[in-house]
Design a protein around this nucleic acid. Structure first.
Length: 422
RNA sequence: GGAGGAGUGGCAGAGCGGUUGAAUGCACCUGUCUUGAAAACAGACGUACCGAGAGGUACCGGGGGUUCGAAUCCCUCCUCCUCCGCCA
């Protein structure tokens, strides 16, 4: 949620930013009108309330001194004031609700460096793959065939148990998952991120705090009996740890990480993009989250890009980094970099990480502030996948396949206990 | 799931219908004193909204109600504690 002050004071900047997302100024204008109305209503209400409070106090005095008649007279006056107040209060509540809903509809303003554009086709390559893409010999198999051949995961079994898009990992496939999770967490904690293991279901307040609601309503699984949402990413519970908090600047930066499964309904996607593990309803991910001073957040973003790059390099996977265009960014982000890994058998780039700075957009919804002495201001929040498993597994299997089986990256071997899948 | 008890400022803890945004203690902050610290003393010390300011309004777990007036009474929901039941 954007700050009202920004909408009022930086109209040109807001307009230019929203244009990059192909969004107009209608809601911005409406928000300002509603905010003006809100203020005027409050002033009027406060004045009436103030008068009523003063009279009520006088009633108390008159009652004490035995002046029943005077008290009754004042009661009538207060009654009249209240009659005026009630409709005002109702109107005011309505105005606030409309203002809130309007603000929730306005997406974050992209960073000035973010290119304009409509969709993924307009994204900018920020960093090319560092080396020549591997070329596999004839007969190389896509990961879903490898998964079947070596009994690493079973999609049909998932259908039986749950439905499509819920893979069942088994044997060395399951162990590889566990190894990747442990490796990613160890790397993150070595970088100073505190590990959390949060709930996998959250309430509506948490979903709203990070922007999953209302923007992604329908993309989350909803446990209606208890009105809880299955998390689409660990970002939601981990960032919400600080919802409503005021953090002293001396405690910054806050660096958190956590592993969780991620649940996404992903309704309506078909074709090669969803073959095998390319897009599933449940996958595992290690997420990193940071809370920063505004002046530090872009250095933090670079640091996070470095961290994710380091992981992919350690796994020896060819990757590139995209800077998303305005139209392809998520609703809440100021700037987003996507990491894509080359899946050699499919000859396809697979997105394995998304690293974003939200500036104050999430913090404003979360009401997450930082303070230095008496001075308080909104924090900047950032997060990134480090990393998302299913597609990493897909590319490891495909890229590392050979005549003698699939080679496990060296850094993972201490975690898997085996060097080859055969 | 059933029965009972409780939710007040950073913490502890009064208040139980009328200048109570809230006593008191501790913690924190600022001064005085001290070479420095401690102690002592003095002061400041919640959040949000409106207002140029003076100041005003709201908030005592959330929501609703009674009343001229609610932290105080009523309803409801949530959370925690104790006991019982069930259970990985």
């Amino acid at each position: 949620m954007l700050e009202m002050s920004r909408l009022r004071n930086d109209r040109a900047g807001v307009e230019a930013g929203l244009a990059k997302r192909n969004v107009g100024m209608t809601d911005v204008d409406l928000a300002i009108v509603l905010d003006d109305k809100r203020k005027a209503e409050q002033q009027e209400m406060d004045a009436i309330q103030s008068e009523a409070n003063a009279l009520s106090r006088q009633i108390g005095d008159k009652m004490k001194s035995g002046d029943r008649e005077g008290a009754d007279q004042l009661k009538t006056q207060v009654g009249e004031l209240k009659a005026k107040l009630t409709p005002l209060q109702e109107a005011h509540a309505q105005t606030r609700l409309e203002l809130e809903n309007t603000l929730l509809r306005i997406p974050n303003i992209p960073h000035e460096s973010v290119p304009a554009g409509r969709d993924a086709a307009d994204n900018e390559v920020y960093q090319e793959a560092p080396k020549a893409l591997p070329v596999l010999p004839e007969g190389a198999k896509p990961h879903w065939e490898l998964g079947k051949k070596y009994q690493l995961f079973d999609l049909e079994l998932g259908v039986k148990l749950t439905g499509s898009g819920f893979p069942v990992y088994r044997g060395k496939g399951a162990k590889l998952q566990r190894a990747l999770i442990a490796y990613f967490l160890d790397r993150a904690t070595a970088e100073g991120y505190e590990e959390f293991l949060p709930p996998h279901l959250v309430n509506a307040d948490s979903a709203r705090g990070t922007g999953a609601l209302p923007d992604k309503e329908g993309q989350m699984y909803h446990a209606t009996a208890d009105d809880l949402y299955l998390i689409p990413t660990a970002e939601v519970p981990i960032t919400n740890i600080y919802r409503g908090d005021i953090v002293d600047e001396s405690e910054l930066p806050v660096k958190m990480c956590g592993y969780t499964p991620c649940f996404r309904r992903e309704a309506g996607s078909y074709g090669k993009e969803v073959r095998g593990l390319n897009r599933v309803h449940q996958f595992d991910k290690v997420e990193i989250v940071r809370i920063e001073r505004p002046e530090d957040s872009y250095a933090a973003l670079q640091d996070m890009l470095g961290h994710v790059s380091g992981l992919l390099e350690a796994l020896d996977l060819p990757y590139r980094i995209l800077k998303l265009c305005g139209g392809d960014q998520t609703f809440t982000s100021t700037i987003t970099y996507d990491f894509e890994v080359w899946s050699a058998a499919q000859k396809l780039w697979l997105e394995v990480s998304s690293v974003s700075n939200f500036e104050t957009f999430q913090a404003n919804r979360l009401n997450l502030r930082i303070k230095k002495g008496k001075e308080k201001r909104l924090a900047h929040t950032l997060n990134g996948s480090a990393l998302a498993l299913a597609r990493i597994v897909a590319s490891i299997l495909e890229n590392n396949q050979g005549l003698n089986g699939i080679a496990i990256p060296e850094v993972l071997q201490p975690y898997t206990g085996f060097a080859v899948i055969k």
